[in-house]
Simulated assay, not measured.
Amino acid sequence: MKLAIASPHYRSNRGNKITADRLWSGLTKEGAETAVVSSTDNEPLPGGTELVIGFHAYKFAAYYRAFGRGLPYIVTVTGTDINQDLHTEERGPVVREMVENAEMIHVFDTYMEKEIRTYFPEKEVLVLPQAVTIDPLPRVKSDRFTVFLPAGIREVKDISGAVNALRPLGESGDIRLLLAGPVIEENEMEKISPFLQEEWLEWTGEVPFSEMRELYRKCDVVINHSESEGQSSAVLEAMAFGRPAAVRDIPGNAGVVTHMENGLLYEGEEGLRDAVLLLKQDTSLQEKLREGALKRVKDRHDPEKEAAFLMNRIKRILS
């Protein structure tokens, strides 16, 4: 069996690359000859490919028309394709066509399943949460409470909003904010550049996935301030590393984090600031959320189960 995973921006260290690499590893272990191609770089499919797993319905569309036409495919919904693109005049018809003609739609949580069933009631939907490997890390001792925000710098991640929210805490010496991720939209980088000279804020730039572990080890809490998410790899990584997560209360995040059980949900900039202060002041809550997070990923996000379940569906499609 020859499979291909078509991931947008695969050559950049972003969430889609992490997901693609994990699925590649799992499906390969399940016996499939699997390749990963970057759909936004127009990397051709290997000869003999039997089925394509395309990430992001809109970004996959042009690639499929150029390289995969006629092949069966699965669409993996990554968030903005359904939360945003589906509802625009320009991109909506493209998303609809790709979803309607897919063999199956793969989503990460039940919220997105409901969205798909609302607009495409006849489609087969596979709800399969992203997987992650559990690796609890001890905290590196620091004289300042460190907040970590791993995300590519683009509008939907609202990095500037997070910086604005936490600036009072940083300037007062209460926290340090660490940013890590590539610049995807220059205009968004311009919003945070003026603050990078301040002592409380650090941006590492793009970091290879193999080096991210050390950044998680240095932090006290991981935040996600996105306006839209499918299911954040960074949030799951934080939980697997045993770091408390404070995340914006949007469907993709709320599908993973249960408030005060395995993380914190908040609304708006003031909510982010309050969540960070709460965690800084309450070490017992930090430990409670750490334990809850590790339990969640152990129970619901096992890499071997993810690959086996997906492979069973693929075999059924190709039979």
Rank of each mutant, 00 (worst) to 15 (best):
Y216E: 14
E267I: 04
E185A: 04
E30G: 07
N13A: 12
S319H: 10
M189N: 14
S232P: 06
A275C: 04
R167K: 15
A61F: 14
R176K: 13
A180S: 15
I5K: 01
R14F: 00
E100M: 06
P303R: 06
A62S: 14
T204R: 14
K123H: 05
F120Q: 09
K141R: 13
D274L: 07
S210F: 04
I250M: 09
I192W: 13
A6D: 07
P168G: 05
G292W: 06
T19A: 14
I159S: 09
A245W: 11
S319M: 02
K114C: 03
E33L: 08
G242E: 13
E227Y: 12
L196C: 09
L86D: 07
T146A: 08
G26D: 12
A246C: 08
M98D: 13
G292F: 12
N16P: 05
K305M: 13
H87T: 00
G292Q: 06
G252D: 12
E237A: 09
R313F: 09
G230A: 09
L201D: 06
S7F: 05
T204F: 10
A275H: 02
S12H: 14
T40M: 10
H56K: 11
A234T: 15
R117L: 15
R11C: 02
W200D: 06
R248I: 06
D41C: 05
D143R: 14
E30A: 15
K17N: 08
N253S: 12
V52F: 05
R22G: 03
P72A: 07
F145V: 08
I175C: 00
L236Q: 13
E261P: 04
V147F: 13
V276F: 01
K123W: 00
L279H: 04
S228V: 12
E33Y: 05
R14T: 12
G230D: 12
F108Q: 15
V222P: 10
Q130C: 08
A293I: 03
L201M: 07
L177F: 08
V127T: 14
A234I: 01
L236Y: 03
L289G: 11
F309N: 11
F148R: 04
V235W: 06
V37R: 09
K295D: 14
L166K: 06
G161R: 01
D135N: 14
S25H: 10
I314W: 09
S12F: 04
R300H: 12
H301K: 02
M212K: 02
G170L: 05
E89G: 01
P72K: 05
S319A: 11
P121V: 00
M189Y: 15
K295V: 00
R243G: 13
L277T: 00
V77T: 08
I53W: 07
L128S: 08
K123D: 08
E30P: 01
L71H: 06
R96K: 15
K315A: 08
D174E: 14
V52A: 07
T110L: 05
R290H: 10
A20F: 10
V132Y: 11
V247S: 11
E89H: 07
L265S: 02
E198K: 14
G271H: 01
E211R: 11
G252Y: 09
V37N: 11
L278I: 00
Y10N: 10
V77K: 01
S172P: 01
T78V: 14
L51V: 05
F148D: 13
K295W: 12
D109M: 09
P244I: 00
S160H: 15
L272K: 04
A151T: 03
H9F: 15
D274M: 01
K123M: 12
W200F: 13
